[in-house]
Amino acid sequence: MIELRHVHFAYDTQPVLRDVSFLVDDSEAVVIMGPSGSGKSTILRLILGLDCPREGEILVDHKDVGRLGRGPLREIRKKIGMVFQDGALFDSLTVGENVGYYLIEHTKLKWDEIERRARAMLGFVGLEADEVIDKLPDQLSGGMRRRVAIGRALLSTEPQIMLYDEPTTGLDPYATHNIINLINKLHRERSISSIVVTHQIADAFAVAKRFIVIYRGEVAFDGSLEELRECRDERVEDFLAPFRASMKGVFERKFVDGAAPE
Protein backbone atom coordinates (compact mmCIF):
# COMPACT_ATOMS: atom_id res chain seq x y z
CA MET A 1 0.00 0.00 0.00
CA ILE A 2 1.22 3.48 -0.88
CA GLU A 3 -0.21 6.62 0.64
CA LEU A 4 0.76 10.23 0.11
CA ARG A 5 -0.50 12.63 2.78
CA HIS A 6 -0.40 16.37 2.12
CA VAL A 7 2.95 16.17 0.34
CA HIS A 8 4.72 19.38 -0.60
CA PHE A 9 7.95 19.38 -2.58
CA ALA A 10 10.17 22.00 -4.21
CA TYR A 11 13.43 22.04 -6.16
CA ASP A 12 15.35 24.88 -4.51
CA THR A 13 12.78 27.70 -4.50
CA GLN A 14 10.68 26.25 -7.33
CA PRO A 15 7.55 24.55 -5.93
CA VAL A 16 6.81 21.25 -7.68
CA LEU A 17 4.12 19.53 -5.59
CA ARG A 18 1.47 21.20 -3.42
CA ASP A 19 -0.61 19.29 -0.90
CA VAL A 20 -0.69 16.05 -2.87
CA SER A 21 -2.65 13.23 -1.22
CA PHE A 22 -3.80 9.87 -2.56
CA LEU A 23 -3.78 6.21 -1.66
CA VAL A 24 -2.92 3.20 -3.82
CA ASP A 25 -4.11 -0.13 -2.42
CA ASP A 26 -2.36 -3.47 -2.72
CA SER A 27 -2.71 -4.93 -6.23
CA GLU A 28 -4.24 -1.73 -7.56
CA ALA A 29 -3.22 -0.15 -10.86
CA VAL A 30 -3.22 3.64 -11.02
CA VAL A 31 -2.19 6.05 -13.74
CA ILE A 32 -0.84 9.47 -12.88
CA MET A 33 -1.39 11.84 -15.78
CA GLY A 34 -0.67 15.46 -16.37
CA PRO A 35 1.15 17.86 -18.61
CA SER A 36 4.96 17.76 -18.81
CA GLY A 37 6.56 19.41 -15.81
CA SER A 38 3.51 19.01 -13.59
CA GLY A 39 5.41 16.92 -11.01
CA LYS A 40 4.37 13.38 -12.02
CA SER A 41 7.87 11.87 -12.09
CA THR A 42 8.71 13.65 -8.83
CA ILE A 43 5.95 11.64 -7.13
CA LEU A 44 7.68 8.40 -8.16
CA ARG A 45 11.06 9.69 -6.94
CA LEU A 46 9.48 10.57 -3.60
CA ILE A 47 7.86 7.14 -3.25
CA LEU A 48 11.23 5.52 -3.94
CA GLY A 49 12.94 7.78 -1.41
CA LEU A 50 15.24 9.36 -4.01
CA ASP A 51 14.00 12.78 -2.86
CA CYS A 52 12.52 13.93 0.45
CA PRO A 53 9.29 15.93 0.69
CA ARG A 54 9.39 19.39 2.26
CA GLU A 55 6.17 18.60 4.11
CA GLY A 56 3.80 15.67 4.42
CA GLU A 57 4.21 11.92 4.60
CA ILE A 58 4.81 9.21 2.02
CA LEU A 59 3.81 5.86 3.46
CA VAL A 60 4.86 2.60 1.83
CA ASP A 61 3.48 -0.32 3.80
CA HIS A 62 2.75 2.12 6.65
CA LYS A 63 6.36 3.35 6.84
CA ASP A 64 7.19 6.97 6.08
CA VAL A 65 9.98 6.76 3.48
CA GLY A 66 10.86 10.42 4.05
CA ARG A 67 11.94 9.69 7.60
CA LEU A 68 13.61 6.30 7.23
CA GLY A 69 17.33 5.68 7.70
CA ARG A 70 19.43 4.05 4.99
CA GLY A 71 18.90 0.46 6.19
CA PRO A 72 15.10 0.51 6.52
CA LEU A 73 14.85 2.53 3.30
CA ARG A 74 16.80 -0.18 1.49
CA GLU A 75 14.31 -2.75 2.83
CA ILE A 76 11.39 -0.65 1.54
CA ARG A 77 13.08 -0.27 -1.85
CA LYS A 78 13.28 -4.05 -2.10
CA LYS A 79 9.49 -4.03 -2.35
CA ILE A 80 9.52 -1.53 -5.20
CA GLY A 81 10.56 -2.00 -8.80
CA MET A 82 11.17 1.16 -10.77
CA VAL A 83 11.25 1.53 -14.54
CA PHE A 84 12.88 4.87 -15.27
CA GLN A 85 12.32 7.06 -18.30
CA ASP A 86 14.26 5.55 -21.22
CA GLY A 87 15.02 2.51 -19.06
CA ALA A 88 18.14 3.95 -17.38
CA LEU A 89 20.05 0.79 -18.29
CA PHE A 90 23.75 0.71 -17.43
CA ASP A 91 25.27 1.33 -20.82
CA SER A 92 28.63 -0.29 -20.05
CA LEU A 93 26.96 -3.59 -19.10
CA THR A 94 25.40 -6.16 -21.41
CA VAL A 95 21.68 -6.84 -21.37
CA GLY A 96 22.27 -10.00 -19.31
CA GLU A 97 24.35 -8.10 -16.76
CA ASN A 98 21.72 -5.36 -16.60
CA VAL A 99 18.89 -7.80 -15.96
CA GLY A 100 20.94 -9.70 -13.38
CA TYR A 101 22.37 -6.52 -11.84
CA TYR A 102 20.71 -6.88 -8.47
CA LEU A 103 21.75 -10.52 -8.16
CA ILE A 104 25.33 -9.67 -9.14
CA GLU A 105 25.50 -6.91 -6.53
CA HIS A 106 23.60 -8.43 -3.65
CA THR A 107 23.97 -12.20 -3.86
CA LYS A 108 26.80 -14.68 -4.12
CA LEU A 109 25.17 -16.59 -6.97
CA LYS A 110 27.49 -17.80 -9.71
CA TRP A 111 27.22 -16.11 -13.11
CA ASP A 112 25.79 -19.29 -14.68
CA GLU A 113 22.82 -19.19 -12.33
CA ILE A 114 22.36 -15.43 -12.76
CA GLU A 115 22.48 -15.86 -16.53
CA ARG A 116 19.91 -18.66 -16.36
CA ARG A 117 17.54 -16.41 -14.40
CA ALA A 118 18.25 -13.43 -16.66
CA ARG A 119 17.41 -15.56 -19.71
CA ALA A 120 14.14 -16.68 -18.13
CA MET A 121 13.27 -13.08 -17.28
CA LEU A 122 14.08 -11.89 -20.79
CA GLY A 123 11.70 -14.57 -22.07
CA PHE A 124 9.03 -13.39 -19.63
CA VAL A 125 9.24 -9.81 -20.89
CA GLY A 126 8.97 -11.05 -24.46
CA LEU A 127 12.54 -10.87 -25.70
CA GLU A 128 14.60 -13.59 -27.38
CA ALA A 129 17.29 -14.17 -24.76
CA ASP A 130 19.78 -15.68 -27.22
CA GLU A 131 19.50 -12.63 -29.44
CA VAL A 132 19.85 -9.89 -26.86
CA ILE A 133 21.62 -11.19 -23.78
CA ASP A 134 25.13 -10.29 -24.93
CA LYS A 135 24.19 -7.01 -26.57
CA LEU A 136 24.81 -3.59 -25.08
CA PRO A 137 21.77 -1.38 -24.40
CA ASP A 138 22.79 0.95 -27.23
CA GLN A 139 22.25 -1.89 -29.68
CA LEU A 140 18.58 -2.28 -28.70
CA SER A 141 15.50 -0.42 -29.87
CA GLY A 142 13.61 1.86 -27.45
CA GLY A 143 10.88 -0.73 -26.84
CA MET A 144 13.40 -3.48 -26.17
CA ARG A 145 15.26 -1.25 -23.72
CA ARG A 146 12.06 -0.61 -21.77
CA ARG A 147 11.38 -4.34 -21.62
CA VAL A 148 14.90 -5.02 -20.40
CA ALA A 149 14.37 -2.31 -17.77
CA ILE A 150 11.14 -3.99 -16.65
CA GLY A 151 12.97 -7.33 -16.52
CA ARG A 152 15.74 -5.79 -14.45
CA ALA A 153 13.23 -4.34 -11.99
CA LEU A 154 11.40 -7.67 -11.71
CA LEU A 155 14.49 -9.83 -11.26
CA SER A 156 15.81 -7.60 -8.50
CA THR A 157 13.65 -8.40 -5.52
CA GLU A 158 10.38 -9.72 -6.94
CA PRO A 159 8.73 -6.38 -6.11
CA GLN A 160 5.19 -5.94 -4.82
CA ILE A 161 4.95 -2.46 -6.30
CA MET A 162 6.01 -1.35 -9.79
CA LEU A 163 6.57 2.27 -10.67
CA TYR A 164 6.69 3.14 -14.37
CA ASP A 165 7.95 6.54 -15.43
CA GLU A 166 6.71 7.34 -18.93
CA PRO A 167 7.04 3.72 -20.07
CA THR A 168 5.77 4.33 -23.59
CA THR A 169 7.07 7.80 -24.38
CA GLY A 170 8.94 7.93 -27.66
CA LEU A 171 7.98 4.42 -28.74
CA ASP A 172 6.30 3.41 -31.98
CA PRO A 173 2.70 2.05 -31.74
CA TYR A 174 3.84 -1.58 -31.91
CA ALA A 175 6.39 -1.21 -29.11
CA THR A 176 3.87 0.81 -27.08
CA HIS A 177 1.31 -1.96 -27.49
CA ASN A 178 3.85 -4.55 -26.29
CA ILE A 179 4.84 -2.53 -23.22
CA ILE A 180 1.20 -1.95 -22.28
CA ASN A 181 0.46 -5.64 -22.59
CA LEU A 182 3.49 -6.43 -20.45
CA ILE A 183 2.39 -3.99 -17.73
CA ASN A 184 -1.09 -5.51 -17.74
CA LYS A 185 0.30 -9.06 -17.75
CA LEU A 186 2.47 -8.28 -14.73
CA HIS A 187 -0.44 -6.77 -12.88
CA ARG A 188 -2.72 -9.68 -13.68
CA GLU A 189 -0.33 -12.59 -13.15
CA ARG A 190 1.67 -11.31 -10.18
CA SER A 191 -0.89 -9.03 -8.48
CA ILE A 192 1.65 -6.26 -8.40
CA SER A 193 0.48 -2.74 -7.53
CA SER A 194 1.33 -0.43 -10.41
CA ILE A 195 1.71 3.30 -10.64
CA VAL A 196 2.18 4.40 -14.21
CA VAL A 197 3.18 7.98 -14.90
CA THR A 198 2.39 9.16 -18.40
CA HIS A 199 1.09 12.04 -20.43
CA GLN A 200 -0.03 9.71 -23.23
CA ILE A 201 -3.79 9.61 -22.72
CA ALA A 202 -4.42 6.58 -24.93
CA ASP A 203 -1.83 4.52 -23.07
CA ALA A 204 -3.17 5.65 -19.70
CA PHE A 205 -6.63 4.27 -20.44
CA ALA A 206 -5.14 0.93 -21.46
CA VAL A 207 -3.23 0.20 -18.25
CA ALA A 208 -5.57 1.20 -15.41
CA LYS A 209 -9.10 2.09 -14.43
CA ARG A 210 -8.19 4.71 -11.85
CA PHE A 211 -6.65 7.98 -12.89
CA ILE A 212 -5.02 10.81 -11.04
CA VAL A 213 -4.47 14.07 -12.89
CA ILE A 214 -1.67 16.25 -11.57
CA TYR A 215 -1.87 19.83 -12.74
CA ARG A 216 0.81 22.34 -11.73
CA GLY A 217 1.76 20.26 -8.71
CA GLU A 218 -1.77 19.69 -7.42
CA VAL A 219 -4.14 16.74 -7.62
CA ALA A 220 -6.78 18.01 -10.01
CA PHE A 221 -8.65 14.73 -10.33
CA ASP A 222 -8.71 11.26 -8.78
CA GLY A 223 -11.25 8.75 -10.03
CA SER A 224 -12.47 6.34 -12.68
CA LEU A 225 -12.67 6.72 -16.43
CA GLU A 226 -16.38 7.55 -16.29
CA GLU A 227 -15.80 10.20 -13.65
CA LEU A 228 -12.98 11.62 -15.72
CA ARG A 229 -15.25 11.85 -18.74
CA GLU A 230 -17.82 13.75 -16.69
CA CYS A 231 -15.31 15.91 -14.83
CA ARG A 232 -15.70 19.61 -15.47
CA ASP A 233 -12.78 20.84 -13.40
CA GLU A 234 -11.06 23.61 -15.38
CA ARG A 235 -7.61 22.13 -14.85
CA VAL A 236 -8.68 18.68 -16.04
CA GLU A 237 -10.52 20.17 -18.99
CA ASP A 238 -7.43 22.18 -19.87
CA PHE A 239 -5.26 19.05 -19.80
CA LEU A 240 -7.74 16.87 -21.71
CA ALA A 241 -8.85 19.50 -24.22
CA PRO A 242 -6.40 18.50 -26.97
CA PHE A 243 -7.51 14.87 -26.65
CA ARG A 244 -11.29 15.32 -26.41
CA ALA A 245 -11.88 14.65 -30.08
CA SER A 246 -10.12 11.32 -29.98
CA MET A 247 -11.34 10.33 -26.50
CA LYS A 248 -14.32 8.30 -27.67
CA GLY A 249 -12.13 6.02 -29.74
CA VAL A 250 -9.65 5.77 -26.91
CA PHE A 251 -12.34 4.67 -24.44
CA GLU A 252 -13.25 1.79 -26.67
CA ARG A 253 -9.68 0.77 -27.48
CA LYS A 254 -9.07 -2.94 -27.20
CA PHE A 255 -5.77 -4.67 -26.57
CA VAL A 256 -4.69 -8.15 -27.54
CA ASP A 257 -4.22 -9.35 -23.98
CA GLY A 258 -7.46 -7.86 -22.72
CA ALA A 259 -8.66 -4.68 -21.14
CA ALA A 260 -7.01 -2.57 -18.49
CA PRO A 261 -6.91 -4.13 -15.02
CA GLU A 262 -9.09 -3.07 -12.10
Partner: peptide
Protein backbone atom coordinates in the same frame (compact mmCIF):
# COMPACT_ATOMS: atom_id res chain seq x y z
CA UNK B 1 21.79 12.49 -16.66
CA UNK B 2 20.61 9.06 -17.84
CA UNK B 3 19.17 8.27 -14.35
CA UNK B 4 21.67 5.41 -13.93
CA UNK B 5 22.72 6.80 -10.54
CA UNK B 6 19.07 6.80 -9.45
CA UNK B 7 18.73 3.24 -10.71
CA UNK B 8 21.72 2.23 -8.58
CA UNK B 9 20.19 3.81 -5.49
CA UNK B 10 16.89 2.07 -6.28
CA UNK B 11 18.77 -1.24 -6.30
CA UNK B 12 20.21 -0.52 -2.84
CA UNK B 13 23.69 0.38 -4.05
Amino acid sequence: SAHQIDAMVAFGI
